[in-house]
């Protein structure tokens, strides 16, 4: 036990010295993920579209595989472009299919999720057969591997994140209005359909930024959990957004740290568990309806 503790302590000391470049790269890349997913996830959660992020995450797999099969290249921009196209298409398809009788929006999300992921699985079996490809690079996309990120990729991810953040800031008012009161927004002359579509595209961009660190299966969690935590902390949209971003970045760092300590831990699951930890803390002690606080102030509430 003592030996294990001291080994872990040494590993932790190594981590905090930031001696390795791959640790710094991983921290930078995951911070970008936590930041943009927190900000954009806020609008998704407020709009009631949380699980669309799950569908978009799974839908990146066919794009990644198709991009690899078509170009034969494993460079990040190529793969991520494929991911963006396929996740954007399937998310927009859900919004299109959902408008109409006899289609349940939740089922539409489920269908898009399973079918697009299944197409990805079929393509993956072709990728795994192709002799040129060691499939390791593609498999990393399932659960994320932040340790494999290079400095150049960090720059690429950072630039994409900056673009997403700028767009959110510029269109902040239109987004808030159409999320909370579409009819009022329409009366003010805001093209709600277009804003909604851009939100879906923005979500796909976040997913694409996230998949390399978190993986396609769990990337939705980084959209949903920090934003939900933010709702328990703050009471204004800007406040929720800021706290979601902070929680996102903190969970990213925590996740990288834990996966550095443990051998063979993917960064995706560790980041998600850190985010879930922050959610539970906010649920118990958060200023907005924290369970323990409510009980203390208002007496018996069931």
């Amino acid at each position: 036990m003592l030996v294990v503790c001291s080994v872990l302590g040494d590993r932790a000391a190594e981590f905090f010295e930031l001696r390795y470049e791959f640790v710094i790269n991983a921290l930078l890349a995951t911070s970008a993920v936590g930041l943009v997913c927190g900000v954009v996830g806020t609008f998704l959660v407020l709009r009631g579209l949380s699980l669309l992020g799950d569908a978009a995450g799974h839908a990146t797999l066919p794009g990644v595989c198709a991009a690899f099969l078509i170009t034969g290249a494993k460079t990040l921009p190529v793969l991520l472009t494929g991911a963006l196209v396929s996740s954007g298409v399937s998310a927009l398809a859900v919004t299109a299919f959902s408008r109409g009788r006899r289609v349940r929006p939740d089922a539409a999300i489920g269908i898009a999720l399973t079918v697009s992921f299944a197409i990805g699985v079929c393509l993956l079996s072709i990728v795994q057969r192709s002799p040129a490809a060691t499939q390791s690079g593609i498999s990393d996309f399932l659960f994320g591997n932040a340790a494999g990120i290079t400095r150049r990729q960090v720059v690429f991810l950072g630039a994409t994140s900056a673009a997403i953040l700028t767009a959110t800031l510029v269109f902040h008012r239109a987004l808030v209005l159409s999320v909370f009161d579409p009819n009022h927004a329409r009366a003010l002359g805001i093209p709600v359909r277009i804003v909604e579509g851009s939100l879906v595209v923005g979500m796909s961009l976040c997913v694409v930024v996230g998949i390399q660190c978190v993986g396609v299966v769990l990337v939705a969690a980084m959209l949903i959990i920090p934003a939900s935590t933010g709702r328990l902390i703050a009471n204004t949209v800007v406040g929720v957004m800021l706290s979601a971003a902070v929680v996102g970045v903190l969970s990213a760092w925590g996740g990288v740290f834990v996966s550095f300590l443990g051998e063979g831990l993917s960064t995706g699951p560790t980041m998600v568990l850190c985010a879930a930890f922050f959610f539970v803390v906010a649920l118990l002690f958060g200023p907005q309806g924290g369970l323990l606080r409510r009980r203390a102030t208002e007496g018996a509430i069931t």
């Binding site: 959660v45 009631g48 579209l49 949380s50 699980l51 992020g53 799950d54 939740d106 769990l218 939705a220 969690a221 949903i224 959990i225 934003a227 939900s228 709702r231 328990l232 998600v272 568990l273 985010a275 879930a276 959610f279 907005q288 309806g289």
Partner: peptide, 14 residues
Amino acid sequence: KVRDDAAIGIVFTA
């Protein structure tokens, strides 16, 4: 402060 779809997303991913 937690919608039902967010609740699903939080619990199962975690």
